[in-house]
Design a protein around this nucleic acid. Sequence first.
DNA 1: GAACTGACAACTGTCAACAGTTTTCTATAT
DNA 2: ATATAGAAAACTGTTGACAGTTGTCAGTTC
Lengths: 226, 226
Amino acid sequence: MSEQTRPAKLGRLATYAGRSLEVLRDMILDGTLAPGERLNEVHLSQALGISRGPLREAIQRLASEGLVEAVTHRGVYVRSFSPRELSDLYELRIALETHAVRLAARHAPEERIEELSRLLDHTESSMGVDTTGAYPADQDFHARLAGLAAKPPLVVALTDVGRKIQLARARSAHQPRRARTALDEHRAIVTALTSRDGDHAAALIEAHLVSSLNNALAVLGTEETD
Amino acid sequence: MSEQTRPAKLGRLATYAGRSLEVLRDMILDGTLAPGERLNEVHLSQALGISRGPLREAIQRLASEGLVEAVTHRGVYVRSFSPRELSDLYELRIALETHAVRLAARHAPEERIEELSRLLDHTESSMGVDTTGAYPADQDFHARLAGLAAKPPLVVALTDVGRKIQLARARSAHQPRRARTALDEHRAIVTALTSRDGDHAAALIEAHLVSSLNNALAVLGTEETD
DNA sequence: GAACTGACAACTGTCAACAGTTTTCTATAT
DNA sequence: ATATAGAAAACTGTTGACAGTTGTCAGTTC
């Protein structure tokens, strides 16, 4: 009767391939599987407790998402991005996100914008203690912002490029100092949206992303191989 | 010694999964597999002469590309797009392609632009007889145009949205009359690029895509179910 | 005649074993 | 000692079979 008593080995997705995709993607994005690292099918399937079939299906999707690179008969590797590639990704993201924010300024319903504002309030209050989780909050903000444009293909495109950027930034997670600045920048964007000033919001988003990129590049530059 | 004497059952990709992906994608994009149609794994694997394993891997990639929709335990279906969805896809494409063309106007080397111009000459001359192949030529032009921006992520994004648009337009392939117009519009874009006028080129691209969209919407509107 | 029940068929999800390739290691020769 | 050739190990690509779910259809009940 109850949902709890079913096999439950599979989560909500009800398929090993689907669950493996999410697990692997998380492992890649949080650095458990480092850029350049090889994905051994046998080891991974044993670690996940499944066979190679569904695992390979998950890997195909990761390859399609551009998070891993598959070389025939030679294995799949976690992608690694050069600073130049990171810049290019950000440039694309800027093009997409400025477009999204202009649409949002014109068409987003008042309440959805207020929702976003409240989200920032919540982020700020829970940030007083420590900035852990500041990066997820940042991602959440940008995802909701994209949603305000109400154009599914745009959300898809931004999700795609966002994941690659997250991987490219890899271990250079947000720094505590930057979290504060980012929050202020987010607020300014929401304010511009509230006053329906698309051009201003777009300019703010661009500046925000540029400094985010510069921050990432700086971290990558100073970071020496351990 | 020679490449020809190897098993050769597999083409250049050397893997059933990779080849199946391309075959299936072509079948979807040329309408052999119609929107809404179900992909039966057993039938398809027999038709392709392979087992279900590599076939399923190919299908996962198609799902990731947004060309098919997978429903757990219920099969995968070729995606179908509403006019509204087609419009949204075009809007995204406009945002991306105007961005690309601005970059091209600023940075593309002279010779690459001339190359594009010669491509149009060739298209025009081989179009005198019949307009078959006008649509591939159009796609080729846009692909090369995106390439001029020299930003790989931008090319990837445009390829993704381009494929979906191609599927959404499905059987509404280019009309002979429009082929001529499109060629003229392409020429105007190249001319603007030659004079390094990014804004003008962007405006022309936008107009070109809008009329392309309108053409597609008109065809979809008048087209009744056979 | 319509709605329900249960068996049957079809199909998707998964697994374990096989085949072919690449890599590694060892033994041999220079 | 270095380089080389060959065998062994490790791994990817593929297959055929099994398991569980969904959909179908005949038979039954109201």
